[in-house]
Amino acid sequence: HDTTVHINGLRIEVHGASEEILKWIEEAARRGVEAEEIKRWVEEALK
């Protein structure tokens, strides 16, 4: 999927993410993980 995830006011563009990654992002956000940190993880995961 190409999608934009909104976390604590930060937009994260996610290209080619699976449902699993999207669920993981939402879970991390709920746990209060910094949005910048999530963004870094997602970029690494999608390389």
Rank of each mutant, 00 (worst) to 15 (best):
I25F: 02
K47R: 12
K39L: 13
G9C: 04
E44L: 11
K39H: 06
A29I: 15
I12A: 03
E36Y: 08
L22M: 12
A35P: 13
I25M: 07
I21V: 09
K23A: 10
A29R: 12
I25D: 00
V42H: 00
I25Y: 02
R11V: 15
G9W: 02
L10R: 00
R11A: 15
E26Y: 15
E13N: 12
D2V: 15
V33L: 12
D2T: 15
T4K: 06
V14Y: 10
V14L: 13
L46V: 07
E19F: 11
V14Q: 02
A45S: 06
I12W: 10
E34D: 14
H15E: 13
G9M: 01
G32D: 03
E43R: 05
A45Y: 14
I38R: 00
E26R: 09
V42G: 00
R40N: 07
R40K: 14
K23V: 09
W41F: 13
E44Q: 11
E13Y: 06
T3C: 05
K47N: 12
V42F: 04
W24S: 01
K39D: 02
A28F: 08
I7R: 01
E34Y: 07
G16K: 07
W41T: 05
N8R: 02
A35I: 13
V33T: 05
A17D: 03
A29G: 07
I21F: 06
H1T: 13
R31W: 10
I21Y: 01
A45Q: 14
I38T: 00
E20P: 04
R11S: 14
R40I: 08
A35S: 06
A45I: 10
E26G: 05
I25A: 03
E43V: 09
H6P: 03
A45M: 13
V14F: 12
E44P: 00
R40C: 03
E20Y: 15
A28W: 10
V5C: 10
V5N: 03
H6T: 15
E13V: 06
H1F: 13
G32C: 01
L10Q: 07
V5A: 04
V33G: 02
V33N: 02
K39M: 14
W41N: 02
V33R: 02
E20I: 10
E34N: 12
I21H: 02
V33K: 03
K23Q: 09
A35R: 04
T3M: 13
I12C: 01
V5G: 04
H1G: 13
E19Q: 13
E13D: 15
